[in-house]
Design a binder for these strands. Structure first.
Lengths: 203, 203
DNA sequence: CGGCGTTTTGAGAGAGCTCAACATCGGTGG
DNA sequence: CCACCGATGTTGAGCTCTCTCAAAACGCCG
């Protein structure tokens, strides 16, 4: 989702921000809470998820160091998902009212924020498309293609494979098997922290 | 996805829009092209895709009737994917420069656009959540809950059930069976154009 | 009445999920 | 230094569920 471009956060708002530490499992906010702030992750990871009617956690996004979360909630009275620190984490809170005030006075900041949202929309659309793929192997292929780095072949592994499985909407077993199958067929090569696409065959 | 609120499109921009017909397989733009316009799909579907390093098409999104595409490209000098009509389609083109000019002069329009993007982000997250539900019955339940009307029980059927199946990412057979099962168990009641939730049991 | 698309129902097969066992890797404490 | 422990990574076996292929009833329109 890469919310890395934060030019929309003016120095004034940054100065007024409050830093907060979270223990593992501690919540930043819950779905339905009144929106007070949006957050930037300083250290650690924050899981954005919902609990579906079957009681299962549905992972929406994992915000890592340097990323922001709940930007979309700026225009909503309440949060639309839960935010929980998966491990000890530090976040900075920017007050909603302050951010909106800046947008009124600084068109460039507002425009930068809009651009960031537009990128998120694209990213989410891609994820919806990914979920349409039924086969675990093909879904993995799609993810690898979309997440390939600049060379179009190397995919960095940031978190654990279990996190990747959750992002892909697969059980971790299914992901392991799909990875093993692609590695066996020579389609990819795995190292500890990257996956390299070898795309040998052309059909 | 409901990009239906287009208050950010001022009458002036609307008036200057160009309607264009696409034949099946005809391209709207290619990756790397200079961004000239953003588009609204009037009829048909437009496939947004990229070609990966192995020469395979990676489908990013299929924009349907009423949806906009290339919003994010408003802030980019070039398009980042290909847009091709999968069948005959009609689109309306809004010139990038015109849209941006309006945003500069009319903060309310700009803000409206930003809010629309924020709503899209939330809506897309909901859809991702829906696709995470494996069971056809539970996915249908989720959809019914989300789409229930004001009374929280009545769901209007706008298109055909096949359309609903596509929206849910299920085969139409699976949807029919899930509907029949819920009706049999007394969880819903169906009429020609609505589905009523009876939510009898609490587990 | 005769197509054509939607709605239903049936049977079989494939694929991912569940449950289970085990390996691996850090980290922790004796 | 080593035993222990928890989480991640890996593989196996069976089961359930959806998909696929098929066929038929239904509704709409020319």
């Amino acid at each position: 989702m890469s919310s890395n471009d934060k030019t929309w956060l003016s120095p004034a708002v940054r100065a007024a921000a409050v830093t907060r530490s979270l223990k593992a499992g501690e919540a930043l906010f819950y779905r339905g809470d009144k929106v007070a702030s949006l957050f930037e992750v300083i250290e650690g990871h924050v899981r954005l998820s919902r609990i579906d009617s079957a009681g299962h956690e549905v992972l929406l996004y994992v915000a890592g160091t340097g990323e922001t979360l709940a930007e979309a909630s700026l225009f909503s009275p309440t949060y639309h998902c839960d935010a929980v620190a998966s491990a000890a984490a530090t976040v900075r809170a920017y007050r909603k009212s302050a951010v909106l005030a800046v947008f009124d006075k600084d068109p460039a900041a507002a425009r930068s924020f809009t651009a960031m949202l537009a990128r998120q929309v694209m990213s989410l659309r891609t994820r919806v498309e990914q979920r349409n793929i039924r086969s675990a192997r093909d879904r993995l292929r799609h993810w690898l293609s979309v997440n390939a780095g600049a060379d179009g072949r190397t995919v960095p592994l940031t978190g654990t494979l279990k996190d990747v499985a959750a992002e892909l909407g697969l059980t971790h077993e299914a992901l392991y098997r799909a990875l093993a199958a692609l590695a066996r067929s020579g389609e990819i090569r795995r190292t500890r922290e990257t996956i390299v696409l070898l795309h040998r065959k052309r059909k």
